[in-house]
Simulated scan of single mutants.
Amino acid sequence: MGKPLNVGIIGCGAIIAQYLANFRRLDQVRLVAVADLDPARAQAVADDYDGVRALSVEGLLSAADVDLVLNLTIPAAHADVALKAIAAGKSVYGEKPLAATTEEARRVLDAAREAGVVVGCAPDTVLGTGIQTARKAIDDGLIGAPISASATMATPGHERWHPNPDFYYQPGGGPLLDMGPYYVTALVTLLGPVTSVLGAASHTRDERTIGSGARQGEKVPVTIDSHVTGVLVHASGALSTLFMSFDAVKSKSPNIEIHGERGSLVVPDPNHFDGDVELFPLGATDWETLPVSAGYVDSGRGFGIADLAATPRGKEPRAGGALAYHALEVMESLLESAHKGTSVAIHSTVDRPDRVELTVLADRADALQPK
C-alpha cells in the first residue's frame, strides 16, 4: 500500500489490450515487463510502451522488480503459470477461471498461503458500478430479503467470431467455465456463498466451424458440454437459476434478475462494469432506474489489481482467490451434478466481499504511454 504495484504480464493475446488501456489510468499499478511463448508478441507490446521490457517467461518470473504476475494464458495453463510465479515469490492475478479444475486451484491457493503471497482473479467486473449499485440496493433493503435470482447467457458459440476458438471447446472451456465466472461471481457477491447445486447439461454438436480469420472453415472438435443449466442454493436460503449456452441463439431476458420479499431488481450484464440497475418495488406500477451509488466509476479490466494493491495485508481482496475458488467449485459441481443426476454439496465457502463504495480512481499523471 502507498506505492504502485509492479506488474509483469505473461500472455500477450487479444485480452492484453484492455488491461493496457486501464493500466495507463491507475496510480496503483505499474507495468514493467511482458512475456509470451511467442517472443514477437511480447516484443510488440514492449515496443509500443515506454518503461516496459519484453522478457522470456523465465526471465519475467525471476525479475526482481516484478511484484505481481498477471496471468493471461489459456485456462489450461493458468495453474502451471500461477504455481511458477508463486514459487518465484510473486503474487498472482489471473484471468478466469482460477484453474481448469478445483484440484489445481487448491494447489495454487495452498502454495500462495505457504509462500505468503496474494492470489487475485478475474472477473473484476463485479467491482464496477453495475453490480455494486445492485449490491447496495440489496444491502439497503430495497427488495427485502432476497428469495431468488436468475442468470442467463445465450450465444450460438464463440467460433462465429474468434479466429482460434479451440480452447472454448476443450476441458476448462465451455459456456459454464468460460462465461459462468461472471455470473456466479456476481451472484455470490450479491447473495453470498453457495452450499449446494443441482445441474443438467447437454452436448449439441461434436464439432464447430471457425467463421473468421486464417482458419475460416476449419472444423474444431467439441469435447465439453455446450449447454448447462442448474440451481444454486445459497447459504442465505436464496435460490439462483443459471442458464449458460453456446447452443442457443439469443435471449431477450435480462442477464440477472434478483427477486425479494418487497421488490425485484434487474442487474446489468455481469460481463460489463457498468449499466443500469432497475427496481420494481412492491405496489409500484413501473420499473425505476436507480442512481449509480456504489462501485468503481468508469472501471475496466485491471481494476481488480488496483483493488488488490489497496487491500490491507492479511485481508482477502474483493476479486480474490477464495472467491474465484468458490465460483470454480460451484461450476465444476454443476457439471458433476449434471452427469450424476443428483444434487452436489459445495464444500468451500467465502465471505461475501465488502461492498465498493462509490469511488473514482484518479488518472495517472505518469501514465503508461505509447512510444
Score class of each variant (00 low, 15 high):
G2L: 04
P4E: 07
L5R: 13
I9T: 03
L20M: 05
A21V: 00
N22L: 09
F23G: 02
Q28G: 11
V34L: 10
A42T: 02
Y49E: 06
S56C: 12
A64N: 14
A64E: 15
D67E: 14
V69P: 08
L70I: 03
L72F: 01
I74F: 10
A77F: 13
H78A: 11
A79S: 15
K84G: 14
A88W: 05
G89S: 06
K90A: 00
A100C: 12
T101C: 06
E104D: 14
R106D: 09
R106Y: 00
V108N: 07
V119L: 10
A122T: 03
L127K: 07
G130A: 08
A137M: 07
I138F: 02
D139L: 14
G141M: 04
G144V: 05
I147R: 12
S150V: 10
S150H: 00
T155C: 00
H162Q: 09
P163F: 05
N164Y: 12
F167Q: 11
P171L: 01
G172E: 06
P175N: 09
M179A: 13
P181T: 00
Y183C: 03
T185R: 09
T189E: 08
L190M: 03
V194Y: 03
V194G: 03
S196M: 05
G199S: 12
H203C: 01
E207T: 14
R215S: 12
G217I: 01
K219T: 13
T223V: 12
V231P: 00
A238C: 04
L239H: 11
L242W: 05
K252Y: 11
S253C: 10
N255H: 15
H259V: 15
H259Q: 15
E261N: 00
G263F: 05
L265V: 08
V267K: 07
D269Y: 12
D269E: 10
F273R: 02
D276W: 00
P281T: 08
G283T: 12
T289Q: 13
A294M: 04
D298N: 11
G300H: 10
T311N: 04
T311V: 04
G314F: 08
A319R: 09
L323A: 11
L328H: 05
L335A: 07
H339K: 15
K340L: 15
S343P: 04
E357L: 13
L358W: 06
T359S: 13
L361H: 11
